[in-house]
Simulated assay, not measured.
Amino acid sequence: MSVNAPTILALDFDGVICDGLPEYFATAWRTYCKIWLPSSQTTPENLTSQFDRLRPVIETGWEMPVLIRALLSGVTEAEIWQNWSAIAQKFLQQDNLTAAEIGKQLDAIRDEWISTNLDSWLDLHRFYPGVLERLHSLIDSPVKPLIITTKEGRFVEQLLQRQGIQLPSQSVLGKEIKRPKYQIIRELIAIATQTPVVFWFVEDRLKTLQLVQQQADLEDVRLFLADWGYNTSAERELAQQNPRIQLLSLAQFAEDFSAWG
């Protein structure tokens, strides 16, 4: 194995392999309508594109319908970029809601959709250009691809199978694992059969990479921020200033590992 290639390549799913923006918005809009009962359930013009642009401010699912609430209440995109956390809390207090209540509603709406019309839910997921081809090329290579995601593993497997990619179940570590990604990485390194272990991790959330960076025993894990995912220009600039984290482009991802920087 070349020193310029990993033995294990761990990938986040949403924001690295798959773009779930259409599903995020559709579920968020249904939740918004359920909670705030607008006079019309027809999606307002331009709302979807605004939501898509602002997706990087979202850290947890409950925030998605609140983002719609803020936009429809006249909060500007510039204000949301600058002060989203405080804005979200303001709407919780103003509307006498809690994050847990909204999250429960959103999960229930998504679960009902999945149980009644799984295919239409799966159809709302799209894949970034070239990523599936790259993933497929790794399946019979010396590099072991893994997926570490907060999405349920069974849905990841179904989405990939629809595209002709069959990964072993043990290669998809989803929401059901219920452990932080840095702990999953630690466990994967401990059970790796191929030595030495050269572990690379590609993620679109800077905070997740920073948490891995804070683990003293994971200092040899090579960290990449996917610049095509759900992150901001400010986060990408921070990554470029961090000697442990490398900014990775979609074009680089499709190339040989030696081109990854």
Rank of each mutant, 00 (worst) to 15 (best):
P145F: 12
R162C: 12
L135K: 00
L167A: 04
L135F: 03
R154H: 13
S137L: 07
Q158R: 13
T150C: 10
H125P: 02
E133L: 12
V156F: 04
D140G: 12
P142F: 11
I165F: 05
D140I: 08
F127Q: 11
L146D: 05
L135W: 02
R162F: 13
G130H: 02
V156L: 08
G174N: 10
I165T: 08
P142R: 14
G153P: 05
H136A: 11
E133D: 11
Q166H: 15
E133T: 12
V131M: 07
Q158V: 09
L159R: 06
Q166F: 15
Q170M: 02
Q161M: 11
R134E: 01
L132S: 13
H136S: 11
Q170R: 11
S169V: 11
T150Q: 07
S137N: 14
D123Y: 04
I147D: 00
L124D: 10
H136L: 03
I147T: 00
L159M: 10
E152T: 13
P145I: 09
E133G: 09
I165S: 03
Q163N: 06
R134H: 08
Y128P: 03
D140P: 07
L167F: 01
G153R: 09
E157A: 15
Q170L: 09
L160T: 07
D123S: 13
S137V: 01
G153A: 14
K175P: 09
T150M: 08
Q163P: 08
Q158F: 05
Q158M: 14
L173H: 14
L132I: 14
R134F: 08
I148Q: 00
V172I: 15
S141E: 07
P168L: 03
I148M: 12
R154N: 09
H125G: 06
H125W: 03
S141R: 06
E133V: 11
G174D: 01
I147Y: 00
E133A: 01
Q166N: 14
Y128G: 02
K151G: 01
V172C: 04
I147P: 02
L167K: 00
L122C: 01
L122S: 02
S171V: 10
L146Q: 05
R154Q: 15
V131G: 00
S137H: 14
V172L: 05
I147F: 02
T149D: 09
R154C: 08
